[in-house]
Design a protein around this nucleic acid. Structure first.
Lengths: 151, 151
DNA sequence: CTATAAGATTCATTTAAAATGCATCTTATG
DNA sequence: CATAAGATGCATTTTAAATGAATCTTATAG
């Protein structure tokens, strides 16, 4: 049960931008250097985020990346849903390719769906402003429920 | 966001056993045939389940696999937690190997932990008897919340 | 109008994890 | 002792993800 590094980097890139002072512009190279990660990979991450409408990119000298909306208007659930490639927890989630013979009278699928919705519901409660710790909704994040337990 | 096929097969194997009439014994080959999957892979799945105490295996002629406990006493959350290899949603979940520089003042981790706990909490509500649709707690499963939505 | 700094796009390669296959060992029954 | 079962270890294949490299497009400065 993992998210791809692609999704991880998408979130990190957004957090990086969210924390910049006005006008909130940074280049891909700058962010790749900061995180010491492959610039090539980050280029694709930036592209995907731009295509999904989370960031705006400007080419040419003086260009770079900026949030397309204020951080408090970017939901974390939305980002994950649009970035994570494969949300099929198990084979039977994808009807066209399913091979499992239990499909008709098995409640595992319904249960896993419910669990996945619970997962996404939590992410939907928070925004990029929360993740970047910008103060908006920050009081929510100091509640016990937001403290990392050992699973 | 996927579970491994290994986990998927673990659950399917348990459901298969849960549905057998007394004494609930089946061979690995029988289950592999039924699901038309690699017997080799299923051998390892069966092994893992036996090591975790979910099933009992008996060697030799007339041997096979059986549930080690009644289906209603096997929690789905427990199975997933013990079967899924890697529960680190993102890099920073694993402190020793973490490289992310945001770690100190980023609430993404706390949020993802909360989401993961919400996910597991749902699975913890249900047992193998529910998944196998054996009637126990079945009324719970017909509630709207258990109906598969589109994420 | 050219040099340069940026992102966009495409294709190829590498890596790592998962899945699969094969051979051999152990155990139990008739 | 033959056979049917699971157990174990090693090798191979497959797949998705990650990474790398080359080229294209766009914008700005001088």
């Amino acid at each position: 049960m993992q998210l791809t590094q692609f999704t991880d980097l998408s979130l990190r890139l957004l957090i990086y931008l969210a924390r910049l002072p006005e006008p909130g512009l940074a280049t891909i190279s700058e962010i790749a250097d900061y995180h010491q990660i492959s610039r090539n990979h980050l280029v694709k991450v930036a592209n995907s985020l731009a295509n999904q409408g989370f960031i705006m990119s400007t080419r040419g000298k003086g260009g770079g990346l900026q949030l397309a909306r204020p951080a408090y208007a970017i939901g974390l659930g939305e980002v994950v849903r649009r970035t994570e490639q494969n949300m099929n927890l198990v084979e039977c989630f994808d009807i066209p390719s399913n091979q499992c013979r239990l499909i008709r009278n098995c409640f595992l699928k319904a249960t896993l769906y419910e669990a996945q919705r619970a997962f996404m519901s939590v992410l939907d409660k928070y925004t990029l402003a929360d993740a970047a710790n910008l103060g908006v909704n920050a009081e929510l994040l100091s509640l016990p429920t937001a403290t990392p337990p050992l699973t």
